[in-house]
Design a binder for these strands. Structure first.
Lengths: 165, 165
DNA sequence: CTTGGAATGTCAACAAGGCTGACGTATTCT
DNA sequence: AGAATACGTCAGCCTTGTTGACATTCCAAG
């Protein structure tokens, strides 16, 4: 109820506009995952493997616990995926040096190849969309998405974003 | 390779920018589904039920086949969900008048109540995000999402969008 | 009128990927 | 010494996707 704008600019907050935003999000997300999904299926993996590989690549040497909190799944669920990746030689799990209870996760060369293949496909689509929409639209896109996150997820996102890695 | 812009404006197409867009999409989608998911869980339903209820509400009297093509799942998968909704009195299935093989789907009053509850929750979040980002950002958001869809999904999206219903 | 095909429903079986609960084993902290 | 932490694992359950097979009902073409 606070900061009610001047009238005309509120058109983007009508139920109809919001519903269009919702449906756009739904259909776009399907496009967003379509290309990696095709690649993953060939290799007998799923989205869960993609997410693991993606975030291990983002944070080399991350611990299992950290990955759990980023992905928001149970350790049993992650473990199943992680075990497959380790068995297939895509991920390496090293005992921590300071704290030997921890396992630090790394992509092997094969893992990096898969990550590259997946992210290339996803980036290609994102690039095409960004190019089609233009820089100003991209800024707005990011702003809205960030505002849509839960606060704890936004923290995770920002922590990853503000890395030099 | 065509229409290469002047240089500075290409910054939004760096791999780093694209990766941030990818991660923003991932985290935002989790936020996007979080509120309805909580409501659905209380009632013993899942996202599949939400999608069915949403699109039946959008297109009163749609056929099963049409719903299948929008949702992109197999009829067996949809049927399980649909049967639960029908058994629980949320959806009504009427035999077609012209073509009696077809079933036309409608929300009952109870179904409309659930749909309302779910979409209210989802709209609240979308509204907050739109409000925080502002009208210009919302335009960009929509542009990028539309450019990210597969062409056939974009057709579905546009068909729904351009309805007066 | 018969027959082929389309639309729908249903049964069975299976897989991925979530979940809970319980337990074991290091390791570290108090 | 005992509690807490990090991780792995076994077992079982659920949702939601998949294929395949088969029945029914109806429309339309021959």
């Amino acid at each position: 109820m606070n900061d009610v704008p001047s009238g005309q600019s509120l058109l983007f907050l009508t139920d109809e506009q919001l519903r269009q935003g919702i449906e756009a999000m739904y259909f776009a997300y399907r496009g967003f995952t379509a290309d990696p999904d095709r690649i993953l299926e060939e290799k007998g993996y799923g989205r869960a493997h993609h997410r693991a590989v993606h975030f291990i690549n983002r944070s080399h040497g991350t611990t299992v616990n950290n990955l759990l909190s980023i992905l928001g799944v149970t350790k049993q669920s992650l473990n199943r995926v992680l075990r497959a990746l380790i068995d297939d030689g895509l991920v390496e799990s090293r005992v921590g040096q300071e704290d030997k209870r921890e396992r630090h996760l790394f992509l092997t060369e094969a893992g990096q190849r898969l990550e590259r293949e997946l992210s290339d496909a996803q980036r290609d689509r994102m690039r095409a969309a960004f190019r089609a929409a233009g820089p100003a639209a991209v800024g707005g896109f990011r702003q809205v998405l960030e505002a849509m996150m839960d606060t704890d997820m936004r923290r995770q996102y920002e922590a990853l974003r503000d890395r030099t890695t």
